[in-house]
Computed example of a mutant assay.
Amino acid sequence: MSTSNIKLAFIGAGGMNREHAKAFADIPGVTLAGIHSRTRSKAEALAKETGIPLVCDTIAELHEKTQADLLVIALPEMSIRSVAEIAFALPWTILMEKPPGKDLEEALGLEALAQIHGRRIYVGLNRRFLGSTEAVLNDIHSRQEPRFIRVEDQQSLETARMIGHPEEIVQRWMYANSIHLVDYLRSLCRGAVKKITPISRWNPAAPAYVLAAVEFESGDVGLYEGTWNGPGPWSVTVNTPGRRWELRPLEQAKFVNAGERALNEVPQTDADKNFKPGFRRQAEEVLKAMRGEPSRAPTLASAIETMRMIAAIFEVA
């Protein structure tokens, strides 16, 4: 693989791969090489829109004709396993959209499959790369202070059904969509998880409120608050003795210093203005990892640790 010219292929012709294509195409040295989708007409439309020169009928053809270094997979959860069984056997690095499997069991199966084939797999946890998130990380990493992280999640199973998700995924919606919020606990707190204590438990028969405390070996503490089938925000607050941060919406960072009342707003980055927020920076980090440079690109193992946290918070398999 040339470190100065990365050939990129895609499986899936939905909106997520449209955004990935835009982000990667903006980086010098990246060539969009080809795409495959179960529905060829959709692949042809996305290829025309994004400048992808080749549409392939099979995954094997996609690899053979593009010799791509990096494959981006963005598919509905129910399609992931069958595609991975073919794609993981071919010699390319892979970036998968989240979640990496419909539940923890399937994700662990994908990890085992990747190990059999010796494949490097990264997962698209783009909110780690929002300009707002990176502003918080840069600040709290510069000060060795204890951290209390609170995440507020809101989900609607009826909305999930209305937008066409199969019931098998609706019943696993904490993996499919709450991963966006739960991952903040792992990315903002330090060290391994020490203990997870459900406070208000998940009731699949009557979903309402889920509350759980998460303690880390570093001494950092997280609190997950989920409102199910009711109104609520997606938000993150980060409390330290010297500064309190708030992400609400997640793309907007604001902070208050200790001893002050003024709310300071951090300007949105150009990368988040010009691309789907987090995608441009995420693409850079994946390419760094491919070049063997220090990188924050989330590995499959890292995403699975977030899924383990979800399983413990909701007390599900």
Rank of each mutant, 00 (worst) to 15 (best):
E225N: 11
V55Q: 03
S4I: 07
A112R: 09
P231R: 08
L71V: 15
E49H: 08
N257K: 07
L113G: 00
A192M: 08
A74S: 14
R248T: 14
W92D: 00
N239A: 12
M16A: 08
K273A: 03
A43S: 02
S295Y: 14
R244Y: 02
T93F: 00
S4P: 00
A311K: 13
K254F: 04
R243N: 06
E215D: 10
L247R: 06
K288V: 09
Q252L: 05
A160G: 12
T39H: 05
Q67G: 14
W245G: 03
F275R: 03
S156A: 09
E285C: 13
A311Y: 09
V210N: 03
V238E: 00
A213L: 11
A33K: 01
I73H: 02
N239R: 09
P277A: 02
S178D: 13
A317C: 11
F88Q: 05
L32Q: 00
T31R: 15
E284R: 11
L223G: 02
G124S: 15
L130C: 07
M78W: 14
N126P: 00
G29V: 03
I6D: 00
H63S: 10
N177Y: 15
P28A: 00
I11F: 02
Q115N: 10
P233D: 10
A84I: 05
R186P: 00
R81M: 13
T50Y: 07
E246P: 01
I59V: 15
R261K: 09
S218V: 01
P198F: 05
L75W: 07
P233W: 14
P231E: 07
F88I: 10
H36L: 02
G15F: 06
A213I: 04
F216Q: 05
V238R: 03
I149A: 02
G118T: 05
S79Q: 15
A208P: 01
S82T: 12
P76N: 09
A303L: 09
E64V: 07
